[in-house]
Amino acid sequence: MPIHLSKSLALLALAFTTLSAGATVQIAPAHIYTTQLSGASEDPPNASPATGSATVGFDIATHTLTIDVTFSGLLGTSTNAHIHCCTALPGAGTAGVATMTPSFTEFPSGVTNGTYHHVFDTSLASTWNTGFVNSHGGIAGAEAALLAALDNGQAYFNLHSTFAPGGEIRGFLQPVPEPAGIAMLALGMPLLLVLARRRQR
């Protein structure tokens, strides 16, 4: 390997290591999960033309659960919404309600279109379905179970309506890469381009 290329690779590794260390100290993001909501994702599927999206941020260290949802085109009017957990297989099946019942606080009800944002304290019993907490030995166990299910694609966001009381649109939540990791990749790209150009000479 040419010396200049070896040095460039070493510098790239150092930059990534330094950036990674800095990110660990300065950034402690919640785990982020997202999904697209549809009737086709329900179990059993339905013919609803409605669409939606849900983004969930969950941070056990700070006991925060952030919910952001948009939806439109429901055939019925919205009744309630929850996160269900934990299915036996990733991306399939049904599970009981993990979060508060009958619905998330102030979730839009009686509408066909809406948006929602709320931050919950997961150290409070009121954030959870009592049955879910009891089946996991308490709030700490419930938090750990939900986090594991979210990481493995075994939890889904379900929006219920008058058209489909069991759920008109839903989607399995999937992890989103951590912002620190994306930033590292983006900042490292110029160095990779320099290396590529040098190899072409």
Rank of each mutant, 00 (worst) to 15 (best):
71 F>I: 05
40 A>P: 06
62 T>N: 14
81 A>M: 13
81 A>I: 07
70 T>R: 09
39 G>P: 09
39 G>T: 02
48 S>C: 00
51 T>R: 11
68 D>S: 14
72 S>T: 10
84 H>C: 12
66 T>C: 03
76 G>A: 06
43 D>V: 15
52 G>A: 05
52 G>Q: 04
51 T>G: 10
39 G>Q: 08
72 S>N: 14
71 F>K: 10
51 T>K: 13
83 I>E: 07
41 S>R: 11
42 E>C: 08
40 A>K: 14
47 A>G: 13
47 A>I: 07
85 C>F: 06
70 T>G: 03
61 A>E: 14
66 T>V: 05
74 L>A: 04
79 T>N: 12
58 F>I: 04
73 G>L: 01
61 A>F: 08
44 P>V: 01
84 H>G: 13
56 V>M: 09
58 F>N: 05
69 V>D: 05
62 T>K: 12
42 E>F: 02
48 S>H: 01
54 A>C: 15
78 S>I: 06
74 L>K: 05
74 L>M: 13
60 I>W: 04
79 T>K: 15
40 A>M: 02
47 A>N: 15
47 A>D: 15
47 A>K: 12
39 G>E: 01
73 G>T: 02
71 F>N: 04
69 V>T: 02
80 N>V: 10
76 G>Y: 01
52 G>N: 07
71 F>M: 07
64 T>C: 10
75 L>P: 07
57 G>P: 01
45 P>I: 07
41 S>G: 06
54 A>F: 05
66 T>Q: 07
51 T>M: 03
83 I>N: 05
68 D>A: 11
60 I>S: 12
